[in-house]
Structure formats: structure tokens, C-alpha cells
Write a protein that binds this DNA or RNA. Structure first.
Lengths: 335, 335
DNA sequence: TTGTCTCACGGAAACGATTCTGCTGGTGTT
DNA sequence: AACACCAGCAGAATCGTTTCCGTGAGACAA
């Protein structure tokens, strides 16, 4: 079996309290005793039990990350950023997919973690309520919630959407459609609303059918675009709520023997690496997804230390990256 | 604070032992006492502490998943499959990126988990040795290791590679290049070796430069393809060690004003959804990545129950999916 | 009635850490 | 020489469970 603190104490001829002190450096210990303890630790290959420590300290050094499901490059990047940041602070990361689980099932996690990060979504409301009631420190991937005392990390969807649309408008497009994401995504909802607002503000119409919905993946981008292409008046630009759908849309446009950007301009949202290598390269609203994961962890760790501090919301800036697919890249300008 | 088992016992007027019995159903309890206990549990919103339980039972109901890094759709799918399967069995999943960490740092995880899944790689050797020495139940994403008593889950790289190459050969291609993955991936190494073997077996040459290496992502697929296109004799087919690089290669081919599959046939490996929607659709060796994650968890849970059983290796079958990019799709045949 | 057996349940000892409290012996002051 | 003081360490309580062992009460046979 694994060596325990008792084994170490016995070998070093000290009490377990002293072993603990040496390992945590929380109190004065003679150099000589320290050396004896360290020797025993090495010899026995001792590693403190995180579980026992967790019980004694009422803290697990574990964070939980909840997201609808993990089968996307978006989720992968959030996890990657969050895990790096957590590990750097000595925390481990539990990854949990929300989809297909009852909230009561999800509530078995808080007992294992010191805090959790949860993607905001109307679907999660019951779960969030339970978390709030349990007093689990929680950071939302989405807007902060004063009522639940939960902090938030959220990309600037509105600003990003406005940048994309105004860029299209400035370059002469006016029949601009939108392929939105699912209603379960607060980001998608916000981008959709910003699309409506911005179009209205510029006096541009949103004809029937110009607002299509997808599921943030390639194939629903394609099918949504196909619906747009079946409209009586085909749009001259499409703003997509994420890059995967934008790539799917480009595929549908090519399949219809139309050209991007000449016939239809396309702009995505995310800034995925793959978009850069499309033909033409995808213009996109970049959001640093890994940084969002990192920032969520930072905020959560801060919250764990400052339980009573007022709710915080971190807004992550987005940035329009102009490439070929919107018909206004540097190369195009030079033609 | 959270209610403990003592609070429940007090309210139900029973001992904590009885509360434990009721909750775990391990012994006979009167219906009447059971009801009293359950009432108290509800009223106090009691949830047993997984940490205390873990200490008492010497089991955490947590599994660890280690992978080089999580910034790929491949990693996302492994995590997704593993998490689903683990959750179904009542386990939670810790996700840990190996890259950038010392093995001693990684060894802080085993104490938190009942077992771990690790992607096999020469880079991880020291870590694997430490895991074996610690006696942590371990399943490799790769070949089983008799010497370390670790089970393995591995796709049939050889069979998949042979299927892809023989398909190309059967359709008249003979100047077949290979874009391999990094040496840190045992899957990549196996595919590369199988490529050499199969080419040799068919008496086909592998000229200088026909073997290029990438890093399993889009951009290195593009650059590797560019190197192939700069060769004195351009290949008439490229077999890529994964789909992302294959898509990158197609991009490079298009940029050189050559046509897929007419000038150069392309086959990938993975079966990613996105490949289906390329132009032309990507022919690929499909491997069920999520199932690999699932199977690894199943194997690990079995191993935890059967510590002394002989080492097992699960081989996951791959399947060639013929689409447009190899020049032999059904549509093409019908021309 | 007495003894035996079984069924429900209570008591208490783990599990492996942290940490509060208090003891001991050496140093410094007067 | 007497005392206070402090540094360094040991003892023991504690965290919240599970589970072994034991006990009292009731059922049943003798």
C-alpha cells in the first residue's frame, strides 16, 4: 500500500504533526529534523493523500468545468485554457458534459470541487439555482448574474457583431442574412439580437427567411445556407454566429456554383485556425477562446478567496479579422 | 454550512451508521426508519461528502484522462466519449494536459483518481514508469504494455493504412506520398511504418521527400503538401495520417492550381465530420474516436475491479470511407 | 419459562491528513 | 540562582464518511 504520514513519522522518529509542518512549511522546524523527515519522504516515496487533506482542510484543489457537450473545437479550447490556468495554480479540472444529465446528477460534482465554471444557457437554469442554493462558488461562461451572485466571463458579442455588419455595409452589402446559433446558447442569442438591432439602426430590412438557425456545426451551416439560397431574393452577404457554420455556408455556396465573396460575402465568429486556410480565407470576428477559459479560472480562484466580494463580469474583447471571404481584404482592395 | 450525516442522524433520531445504511442500501432497515431518514435527508438537503466517503472507502469515483494537449477536435472527442461513459458508471473525469508539465507534477493526480487513461507516447515514458511503480490502474490510448502491466485501446492503424493505400493502388495510383504525424504520437509512427511496409510490399518506391511530417493540424498539412509539390516528381496521391492535415493538403493543392482528385488523390485518417463537406468530400480511414474514449473507460473500470487479471488490449477497427477526394467514389465510377 | 437465533440498530474504530494546545528544555535577564 | 520566555516538537481533536462488532428485543422451539 501507499505510505502514509504515519509511516513517514515513524521512520523519521517525529510526530505526524511535524511531518505535516515540514511538508507545508507552515512553522519553524530545525534543519536537522527537516532533513530526517525529507529523507523518510524520499525513501518511502511518500505523497500526501489529497483526499485526506481535502477532508481536513475542507478544500479539494479541484475545479469543475461544465459545458453542454465537448464535441467541438470550441469546447476543446475552453478546456485547454482552463486546465492550463488551473494546473498552474495547483488545481485539477473536472470536465462534465451537461447534456443528457439531470441537474441532480450534476449536483454530485460540487462536493468534489472548490468551485465550478458553467456555460450559461436557459437550459441550465435549474442547475444554476441549485448551485446558488448550495453556495458553490460559480463563474458563468456568459453574463454575470446578480440574482445568483455568480460572476461571468463573456465575449463582447455586440461589439463583434456590429464590427462585422458595419464592415459589410461599408463595403456596399445591404442584403445581409444571419445564420444564428441555437437558442440554448446565450452567445448565439446575443449575436442574433445584435444583428437585428444593427440592421435596424442602419435602416436595412431583414426579409423573411434572412434569419436562419444552426447548431454551431458545419453541416447545419450548410443546410441553413441552402435555405437562404432558396429564397426569392438571395442575400449578398451572410454573417454567421460561428466559424464552423460559416465554413459550412461557404461549402453550400460553392455547391450552388456561386462565388465567395463576389456573389455572397461571408463572415464568421470565433477566429478558428482552420478558417484561415479556407478558399477564400474566412473573415471572422476573433474571440480568444482559450483566454476565456483561462480568465474563468482566474476569476473563480479569486472568488474562492473573496466569497463576499461584489459580483464581477469580465468582458473579453473581440476583433474583426478581415480576410478574403468578405470581399474587402487587402488583396481585394488592391485589385 | 452543508448538512452532515450527523445532522441527518440527529433529526431522524437514529445513529449515523443507520443513515449510511439507508443511503447505501447495504443492510436491512425497517421501512419506518428508512422513511424517517429519507425525510431528514430531504429536509436538510443532505448530500454525502464525496471526500469523506473517498477517505473511508479508499476510492474516489474519479478517473483521470491525460493527453498531450486538448486543442484539437480529436482530443475533444476522446474526452466526450470518456466523460459520457464514466458518468454513466457514476465516475467523474479529471482532464489533464501533459504538455508543459513535469511527470512529478502529473503524479499528483493518481491520489485523486481510482485509475487513469494516458495517451501513449515516447515522451511520457518517465510518467508511465512512475504510474506503474505507484500501482495506479492505467489504460493506455495505444498498445498495451506487458512490462508495465497496462491495458491498451488502439485503433487498427496498420489495417487502416493498408486499406487506404491498396485502394489508391487499385485505382491506378503509384506515386503515393505520405504526410505523417509527429513522432510523439504512437499512432502516427505506426501509420508511417505501415505506409513504408505496404509500399514495399507492392514494389512501389518511396522517393526522397515522399515522406513528410506534420503536427496533426491544418497548417502543417498545408506546408507539408507544399514541400511535396516542390519535388521534382510530384506525387499522384497523398495519404495523410489524419484528416486535419489532409484538409490542409487539399488547400495547398488548390492553391497550386491543381485538382483533387484528378491531379492528386488525397486520403485522410479519422473520419471527422468536416471532411464530409470538403470540396471534394474527403476520403478517409474512419476511426470511432469517441468510442475509443468510451472503451478506454470501460476497460479501466474493469481493470479496477480485476487488478490481477492479465493485460488486455482492445483493437478498434477502422474503416475506409470512400468519398470524392481519392478519385474512386461511386459518383466517379459512374462517369 | 428458558434458551437460541435473527433482525435492526447503535457504538466506535478506522481512513490520512491539518492544526490547536500545551509541554519541555535551553537561552537571556536581573 | 530564580524566573520568564521562546523555539521546537508531541498529543490529540477534528474533518465526514464506512463498516465491523456487539447488543437488545422479539420470535420460536423445547
Amino acid at each position: 500500500m501507499r505510505a502514509t504520514i504515519y509511516d513517514v513519522a515513524e521512520r523519521a522518529k517525529v510526530s505526524i504533526a511535524t511531518v505535516s509542518r515540514v511538508l507545508n512549511g507552515r512553522a519553524k522546524v530545525t534543519d536537522e529534523t527537516r532533513a530526517r523527515v525529507m529523507e523518510a519522504v524520499e525513501a518511502l516515496n511518500y505523497r500526501p493523500s489529497p483526499v485526506a487533506r481535502g477532508l481536513a482542510m475542507r478544500a479539494t484543489s479541484v475545479l469543475g468545468l461544465f459545458h453542454q457537450n465537448f464535441q467541438s473545437i470550441y469546447a476543446a479550447q475552453v478546456i485547454s485554457g482552463a486546465e492550463s490556468e488551473a494546473a498552474a495554480a495547483g488545481y485539477a479540472l473536472l470536465a462534465i458534459q451537461i447534456e443528457g444529465k439531470e441537474w441532480s446528477e450534476l449536483m454530485r460534482i460540487p462536493g468534489r470541487a472548490d468551485g465550478v465554471i458553467v456555460t450559461a444557457s436557459p437550459d441550465n437554469e435549474a442547475f444554476l439555482q441549485a448551485l446558488a442554493q448550495a453556495g458553490t462558488p460559480t463563474v458563468l461562461l456568459g453574463h454575470a448574474r446578480q440574482d445568483l451572485k455568480m460572476d461571468g466571463v463573456v465575449p463582447d458579442n455586440r461589439q463583434g457583431t456590429i464590427a462585422a455588419l458595419e464592415h459589410l455595409i461599408a463595403h456596399g452589402r445591404s442584403k445581409i442574412a444571419h445564420i444564428a446559433g441555437p437558442e440554448s446558447s446565450t452567445n448565439a442569442v446575443e449575436r442574433e439580437q445584435s444583428y437585428r438591432d444593427t440592421m435596424a439602426q442602419h435602416g436595412l430590412p431583414v426579409p423573411d427567411g434572412y434569419l436562419q438557425h444552426g447548431e454551431f456545426n458545419f453541416v447545419t451551416g450548410t443546410t441553413a445556407m441552402e435555405r437562404l439560397l432558396a429564397l426569392p431574393e438571395i442575400p449578398d452577404a451572410v454573417f454567421c454566429a460561428n466559424d464552423m457554420m460559416a465554413m459550412g455556408a461557404m461549402q453550400a455556396i460553392a455547391a450552388a456554383d456561386l462565388r465567395v465573396p463576389d456573389d455572397i460575402a461571408v463572415i464568421g465568429f470565433d477566429g478558428l485556425e482552420a478558417g484561415e486556410y479556407m478558399t477564400p480565407p474566412l473573415t471572422t470576428v476573433f474571440q480568444p477562446i482559450e483566454d476565456i477559459g483561462r480568465e474563468a479560472v482566474r476569476l473563480l480562484l479569486w472568488r474562492i478567496e473573496n466569497r463576499e466580494a461584489p459580483v464581477r463580469e469580465e468582458i473579453i474583447r473581440t476583433q474583426l479579422i478581415v480576410r478574403g471571404s468578405c470581399g474587402a481584404s487587402a488583396e481585394h482592395e488592391n485589385l
